[in-house]
Write a protein that binds this DNA or RNA. Sequence first.
RNA 1: GCCGGAGUGGCGGAAUGGUAGACGCACACGACUCAAAAUCGUGUAUCGCAAGGUGUGAGAGUUCGAGUCUCUCCUCCGGCACCA
Length: 955
Amino acid sequence: MTRQYDPKDIEPKWQKAWEKQGIYATKETADKPKYYVLDMFPYPSGEGLHVGHPKGYIATDVISRMKRMQGFNVLHPMGFDAFGLPAEQYAIKMKTNPAVAVEKNVARYKKQLEILGFDYDWSREVNTTDPKYYKWTQWIFLKLLEKGLAEERYEPINWCPVDKTGLANEDIEDGKCERCGAVVEKRLMKQWVLKITQYADRLLSDLDAKKEDGTPLLDWPESIKESQRNWIGRSEGAEIDFKLIEAGSKNEIACATVFTTRADTLFGVTYVVLAPEHSLVAELLEKSSNKKEIEAYISMTKAKTEIDRTDTTKEKTGVELKGVRAINPANNEEVPVWIADYVLADYGTGAVMAVPAHDERDFVFAKKFALPIKHVVAPYHIQGGKHVPREGIETLTRRTVTVILENKKNEVLIIAEPDTTTLLGGGIEEGEMPTETALREIKEETGYADVEVKETILDNFFAKGYRYTKGKNTFTNDYIIHAVLKSDTQEKSEIDEGRHHIKWVPKENVLNEIPHTHSHYEIFKLFLKPHHTGDGLLVNSCSFDGKNSSDEVRKEITKHVGGRWVTKYKLRDWVFSRQRYWGEPIPVVHDENGLVIPLKEEDLPLELPMVEHYEPTDTGESPLANIPEWAEFEVDGYKFKRETNTMPQWAGSSWYYLRYMDPHNDTTLVDSEKEKYWNSVDLYVGGAEHATRHLIYARFWHKFLYDIGVVSTLEPFTKLANQGLITASDGRKMSKRWGNVVNPDEMVDTFGADSMRLYEMFMGPFDQAIAWNTNGVVGTRRFIEKVWKLSSKVTHDAPSHPALHRTIKKVSEDIAGMKFNTAISSMMIFVNDLEKAASVSCADMEALLKLLAPFAPHVAEELWEVLGNEGSIHLSSWPTFDTSKLEEDEVTIAVQINGKTRETMRVARNLDEQVVVDMAKGSEGLKKWIKEGQIKRVIWVKNRLLNLIIDLSAE
RNA sequence: GCCGGAGUGGCGGAAUGGUAGACGCACACGACUCAAAAUCGUGUAUCGCAAGGUGUGAGAGUUCGAGUCUCUCCUCCGGCACCA
């Protein structure tokens, strides 16, 4: 064959042929196993696709094609998500109706997708803005309403002043609107919410659920699971009641309930804090003696943006509620009550018990306002390394002092012994004060006498370890003292005896000197940052003293004070109304009394009216409210008003994967037989940016649909894979703004769709972000040209190439594992091998084309036809490999001397150790390394490696 | 701060504890050509004339053998974050 490879000729030709023959049409059939592979459907913007967008689509196309050839009944559909702000914004700019703009953009997207030769079954296309589709989005809403999971609430929500709409928590990034970047405001308004929090527990626990066979229910990237865990933010803790009394009297005036995960620190509470918005504040204000001051503080808080308020780098603020005191239920101690905005009103109970000794935020606050700090959890360190406590031997209990001795140059004294380096310290003797011990030890060990004790860092630091000198375990209760050297006067000391020596090191280097497994390492860390937030042994906690802080003790203490053990989540209910035009109308009406009346199912879809003006208002009302002929109506003299808010962009995408199973059903969302047939999505591919929005919302709706019997599965997406971003060659995101967009149409025009598809899969690991490099497409184009030329070398009597079966195995496994880059690499190696051969067998060539078909469907189909085959290669069967033909007859053995490779030998496969050792001994190149009788040991890895251990020092 | 992931040539990257750098790009030289492109061939971690040495973010450890396993640290990317 002398014809040139010309993608412009063959690609459109085959695309038309496939469509005409309908080779990708999917029907439910019992004679094959099903495979449902899904892309996150695109949101058709006005800019069209850039080369980064199709990466995920190519991957699913490759997998769907291989699965089809492997005998699966494949569902690989595509559709469009087109409600929401971006489409509306674009339409406003273009001075057209969003419906018109969306139609145009969808047409453009489809065309761009078509030239890439995807195997979508377009007869199943869905579009979220199609009334036939959103009828069922509205239907789900009615069901949620019916089950009490949708409700109207009047409370402060996030308001975007630029987009002029309320937003869900998920739509906020760093206190800014995710879409436009404007700083959001808190605005009190009536809005619809979906109670996703009622599913928080299941959304969290099913992330780790296992199937009956022990495999994970969700085969998802760990990072996405982790993001969802963080977002849901479950924490277990105690709700504890603090009585509030009037200062100076014992009159109980109220009760503040705090939430804490650290009930074990209850004895260390030195004040209580209420959020400024806390419901008790108004009431307590009347009892306070500094009402004005408090009022001023609260109004100052209100004026702050969410960003300012949650900025941890800013100094904490607060004001004491003078005249009111709280009673610690653990010890009946009276503590002050403060109001501070570092406590959030909408998490936990909006009130906290402050334990500055064991909480960083409380510590900072206490320092600023000179509030007391009380230690109740002492660090407990188990010595590591050589000092790990040993089993079954006696434990000595000692009281000790550790001294951090500083000189005037900001250096700290450490003691270097032969086996370890530590701080200075020693045991407290009978009748001695810890400070006396410190001074005595300093003098004895170092000879310094002119020393001042500065402060006690900590009264209790517990450590357990093994002591060589005593041959016993020790349990020490350490007293940590900070002392300062006043002058260098040194007397005779133990250093002179030479057992150890002292060293002054700069403060910042001390941690480098002390072994990190030693308790003194932790002690010095506490000196640098004197509060301990971890677990430890309880002290100053009455009957709980000496216990290990643990959930058990936390529960005990909670019970002891009559508290309740509860679970809290960071996840908030989903604010579901938008004050915008371009979304699904919420299918309810309000009567004259404001009562909500849901639409009847037979009245769905409630269609969005086509209007000329739909710009958002600033009043918190949807533009639909300005269309009285739509929004208002009368029945039997009673006036009704439609709900004029619309649903958020994420509504339609929360269930679309179900509609593909049965896209044209007008009587039900999805036929239950079809739903059972397709089950859940086997592979779902899309960007990682959907971790805490689309993927949480869809899981929530799916679980709800499960609960009402619409679906039969617990989770919608069995396996999830994220494609890595393709950035521009300058490393930045591709964007019109930077002028660095590479257009797929141009790539197809220059190199052909097959070359571009191959390149995107070859670039690197699928899930990794990589910069575009058009030169790389040249490489994959060359590869295709090589395959093209190879077909002219095909003869029927040529032998099969030994690498064939290996290549089939590697490509099959790598595609299944989404390691497309190495799959392509192994095909390249095979093609390079075939090129060197005199001729290529027809069977080898056909197998190669089949392996290539998922990646480069057009050229594979063309050459398949050239070889004289009838029927599409994409409906042919996937090549299988013969295990007995995977290995070559000859193998390369690496011969190492003492672990270093000195020579490689080409030998027959499956030789015995002794044979190869003899060959190595006989080798010229190895003679200088091997001397008879010196081989001490032989390590033999069959067919791979021979390592001869030789005593070279014997020479 | 907490959690997750990653650090390998000029570049993208490959490597069940067993020859580090496969495959591709780029580059250099050679062939073909009047010439260029395309194509084909050869070479390309680093120091060294060589023998050989050194090399996978840094340091330690386990091992006959470590990019791979363990520990400490550094850097980058992503998520969460005044969530008590």
